[in-house]
Amino acid sequence: MKTNSAENDHLPVYESLVRERGDAVAEARVVAEETHHQVTQALNWHDAVQPESES
């Protein structure tokens, strides 16, 4: 969900809470993106190191 600045102009209570407590929504979005990136890397079997065969 994306919001534009025009929508936020009509939310003075939200802006006040962000100033007082921080923007939890933005922080959660950042953590979610980082987690998604880590999970993608962990599940990407193409980049996994293959054990050397014993010959």
Rank of each mutant, 00 (worst) to 15 (best):
A48K: 08
K2F: 11
E33N: 09
E52C: 01
E54S: 11
G22Q: 07
N8S: 12
N8D: 12
L11I: 04
S16Q: 14
S55N: 09
S5Q: 13
P12Q: 06
R29T: 02
V31M: 07
V39P: 04
Q38Y: 05
A6G: 00
V13Q: 08
H36N: 11
L43C: 12
H46C: 04
E33Y: 03
L11V: 01
H36Y: 08
A32K: 03
E7D: 14
V31A: 15
E20W: 03
G22N: 06
E27M: 06
H10S: 09
A6L: 13
N44M: 01
D47P: 03
V13A: 14
A42T: 07
L17D: 03
A26N: 04
W45Q: 07
R29W: 04
V30T: 12
Q50M: 12
D47W: 02
R29E: 09
V18D: 00
R21S: 06
H36C: 00
N44V: 02
D47V: 05
E54P: 01
N8W: 10
H37D: 14
A28C: 04
E34Y: 00
S16A: 15
S53R: 11
E34V: 05
Q41M: 13
R21V: 06
Q50L: 13
Q41D: 10
N8M: 15
Q50T: 10
